[in-house]
């Protein structure tokens, strides 16, 4: 991990010095362990702030929207797919970007680690290849990284960036034999009332802080539908109906665009698994339109084009 960090710093310095980019977007160590923050580096001297380990779960693509300068950006598999989505949605031009690809072996689920240490305060985390060690007051525990991956990383099929100008390190092997949508299938088997109850319980804790929306690279509308007041599409209360409407509409807005980067779940202060909404749409996009978001710069997304063989079984 540390050698990758060194490489990122070197590349960022080089790019900023020779003027290839005006700004470099990467991660820095957060003020709290396991919470690395995005950082925008403008000056080569600041490049030593950059950091890389398995706690870089936020999506850097968020910081690209509508920028007019030249940008260097660090991209894992899902980040690079979000960048591609941004490019085909005309939020950024490809020639503005210098994409530094980085192979990713998955991000650590900080909630699972906190549960594993009984919610004692963790003050430091160090990482080797396949294990990581957390330290706190009076304890130190080592875990296997594979057991504590984020839910989306466990079922990830695109660990290597799909689009990049330069690659740091060797591409990692993609995970094989994973069943990407087993949880969705389980829900599909439930009865109508059970599904309703499942999703009601799921969003029961939601406090409508919109952290999921803010962390999402796809949510770049200048005014979000939840903030519109004429007409007001959705109430601002935590009434279950309002919450459900918010989550449903948020998910619909991500249909065919979501790369399952897991940023929404990672930032949720209440630990809600809102990926259950978007994943159903991802699965539909894949099964009905053979589409996975952000894999190609030339193809248009399914909701953007008309084909005479489009799925239309639901129309009478």
């Amino acid at each position: 991990m540390i050698e990758l960090t060194e490489k990122i710093r070197d590349i960022a310095k080089k790019l900023l010095k020779d003027g290839t980019v005006d700004v470099f977007i990467g991660y820095k160590k957060g003020s709290v362990p396991m919470m690395n923050e995005p950082v925008l580096i403008r000056n080569p001297d600041e490049a030593d702030l950059l950091y890389w380990d398995s706690n870089c779960g936020l999506n850097l693509c968020n910081y690209l929207t509508g920028r007019t300068d030249r940008i260097g950006i660090l991209a894992t598999g899902c980040n690079s797919r979000s960048i591609v989505t941004h490019i085909i949605e005309n939020q950024i031009r490809r020639d503005q970007l210098y994409i530094v690809g980085i192979p990713c072996t998955g991000m650590i689920d900080h909630r699972a680690v906190n549960r594993a240490v009984g919610h004692r305060e963790i003050t430091d985390i160090t990482e080797s290849d396949i294990t990581f060690t957390v330290t706190g007051k009076g304890f130190q525990e080592t875990f296997n990284k594979a057991d504590y991956l984020q839910g989306n990383c466990k079922v990830c099929r695109h660990r290597n960036p799909v689009e990049y100008d330069e690659m740091i390190g060797e591409p990692v092997e993609e995970q094989k034999g994973i069943e990407p949508y087993s949880d969705v299938k389980n829900i599909e088997k439930m009865s109508c009332d059970d599904k309703n109850a499942f999703f009601r319980r799921l969003i029961d804790k939601c406090i409508r802080c919109y952290a999921c929306r803010n962390a999402c690279p796809l949510c770049y509308c200048p005014t979000c539908f939840v903030d519109e007041s004429r007409p007001q599409w959705v109430g601002k209360s935590i009434d279950p109906t309002d919450t459900m409407t918010f989550h449903l509409l948020r998910a619909f807005h991500c249909a065919g665009r979501c790369t399952d980067c897991g940023a929404c779940e990672r930032v949720c202060p209440m630990g809600i698994s809102m990926r259950q909404f978007t994943r159903k749409l991802n699965r539909d996009a894949e099964e009905l339109f053979s589409w996975q978001a952000g894999l190609s710069l030339t193809e248009r997304p399914p909701l953007d084009t008309y084909r005479s063989d489009d799925y239309n079984d639901f129309i009478k």
Binding site: V184, C192, D194, K195, N196, L248, F277, D284, F314, I315
Partner: peptide
């Protein structure tokens, strides 16, 4: 649209689309 609503527990007969 219909798929997700039904996935989250809307009864299948509530929402209809047609082409006439």
């Amino acid at each position: 649209m219909k798929n997700l609503l039904e996935h989250t527990g809307l009864e299948p007969g509530r929402l209809h689309f047609s082409w006439i």
